[in-house]
Nucleic acid binder design. Structure first.
Length: 436
RNA sequence: UCCCGAGUAGCUCAGCUGGCAGAGCAAGUGGCUGUUAACCACUGGGUCGUAGGUUCAAGUCCUACCUCGGGAGCCA
């Protein structure tokens, strides 16, 4: 890569290529340990952390005291020889020849000891520098790239959905309202309806962007702003949809295992749990899932949607994600196609991640019949005029079509084995958090 | 919206039946040539969330409020 400021700069992740050579590293002081006339400086540059060993005998009094005085997270430049050494974390260490202070850090709020989550979230802009958060967001990067690579590789066209929308897509959830000149606009809670238009125009499409829910949810699985990928395919039914979903999720898991071994180790993820994420995934009819819940004696009431505990019980029966399909139509959205074999059922499915992580995908086949869709809009008490353009899709060459939405943060939390989704996005937006 | 829980040093927390405000880490000073969240010694650091009440005496008991955390519902 071209270096615009420093022609001699190399990165920690490339140290192996420079064994026994003298190099310059630019970064920040992660931590230091003094030992009298010997000092250990941990330099962090965003690609990794390397231990730099400096002895007073080698560098002299002036450089040594300059380095000895430096504070945590000060910006520093270190020049020295790259040595392989088993005692060094990472396998390589630098024998310091020169040390330069680029800028001194004030007292850094995040010490190497323990902190509470509130404090760390208040300092999220600095917390990103720590090892674990760095690893998580690198895995997020892999997942997002895998999402794009998968659909691009399958011949999908990226069609971006608008973020300002005129009304509720699904009616039920609370929307964030904003002024739009003389009018009101709402932040999108799903791009799906627009993807249905896209599917009729391009055959296979997906959108990937932020989504907003104004629900007052305070749980480890909820953000008010989260990222969702939503594919939609014309001439595809529920079975095709589930096959797409399981191949998609398997691909993502494989990419993370292929590219992020080091990061998974940093966050102490049990990777055997990831090795099993391979299509095909078990598929359960709603009634079969209900049967499991009956056997396990949960408080589940037949006909209802599954609660958080129900999802955990169902998914704990399997070593990989499970797809539950044909929910009662009454608990699902108006646009879901009804099962021609049982009109009380919707041709929708949820994918429940393993290890109790709950729903990561919701999707299904869409209602493609104009009259049935009209009656559902009426039955759900939705304003018909707002859906005129959507109904047009049923007037002008309607076809069976299906799609789904996958929540990125829940997927990251699951693959990383994290307790809470707030660490899976650089700057989380929660009910009680709008800063930093 | 509902149900729990918590607010004490910069951070993480302890503080018993009401009786002088504590520890570890961080910061500062000194020491140490192989440290792995280094270690050892010393130093500084407090409106106990806010308001009111009970009491000779409140961090501690009571009431209200504020803020935050966990969970439910809803969802991805």
């Amino acid at each position: 890569m071209k270096q615009f400021i420093n022609t001699d700069k190399i990165y920690v992740e490339d140290l192996g290529k420079h064994a026994d050579k003298v190099v310059s590293l630019y970064g920040w002081l992660y931590n230091k340990r003094g030992k009298g006339k010997l000092a250990f400086l941990l330099l962090r540059d965003g690609t990794g952390i390397v231990q730099c060993v400096m002895s007073k005998a080698d560098v002299g009094e002036e450089i040594f005291s300059r380095a000895d005085d430096v504070t945590q997270e000060s910006a520093i430049k270190i020049t020295g020889k790259v040595n392989a050494d088993d005692r060094a974390p990472g396998g390589f260490e630098i024998h310091v020849q020169n040390f330069e202070l680029v800028s001194r850090s004030e007292e850094y709020p995040i010490s190497p000891k323990e902190h509470g989550t509130t404090f760390l979230m208040d300092h999220r802009h600095l917390w990103l520098r720590s090892k674990k958060q760095n690893a998580i967001l690198r895995i997020r990067h892999t997942i997002i790239k895998a999402v794009r690579d998968f659909f691009d590789g399958e011949g999908f066209t990226l069609i971006d959905a608008p973020i300002f929308t005129p009304a509720a897509c699904e009616g039920t959830s609370t929307l964030f309202e904003t002024d739009y000149f003389e009018d009101k606009a709402y932040l999108t809670q799903s791009g799906q309806l627009y993807m249905e238009a896209g599917a009729a125009a391009f055959g296979k499409v997906y959108c990937f962007g932020p989504t907003f829910r104004a629900e007052k949810s305070k749980t480890r699985r909820h953000l008010t702003e989260f990222w969702m990928v939503e594919p939609e395919v014309a001439y595809m039914d529920l079975n095709g949809d589930m096959e797409l979903a399981e191949n998609f999720v398997s691909y993502i898991a494989k990419c993370v295992l292929d590219k992020n071994r080091k990061e998974l180790e940093t966050i102490e993820r049990d990777t055997t749990k990831l090795e099993t994420i391979k299509a095909p995934f078990p598929r359960l009819h709603y009634d079969e899932a209900a049967e499991i819940l009956k056997k396990e004696a949960t408080e589940f009431v037949y006909g209802d949607d599954f609660g958080a505990n129900d999802e955990t019980v169902i998914s704990s029966q399997f070593d990989r994600p499970v797809m539950v399909h044909r929910y009662p139509a009454a608990v699902k959205a108006f646009y879901m196609k009804e099962d021609p074999e049982d009109k009380t059922r919707a041709l929708g499915f949820d994918m429940l991640a393993s290890e109790g992580y709950g729903e990561i995908i919701g999707g299904g086949q869409r209602e493609d019949n104009l009259d049935i869709l009209l009656s559902k809009i009426k039955a759900h008490d939705l304003p018909e005029e707002s859906f005129n353009w959507y109904l047009d899709l049923r007037r002008y060459g309607t076809v069976p079509h299906a799609g789904f939405g996958l929540g990125i943060e829940r997927t990251v939390a699951w693959l990383c084995g994290l307790h809470h989704v707030r660490e899976t996005i650089p700057f989380a937006r929660l009910m009680h958090r709008l800063n930093p």
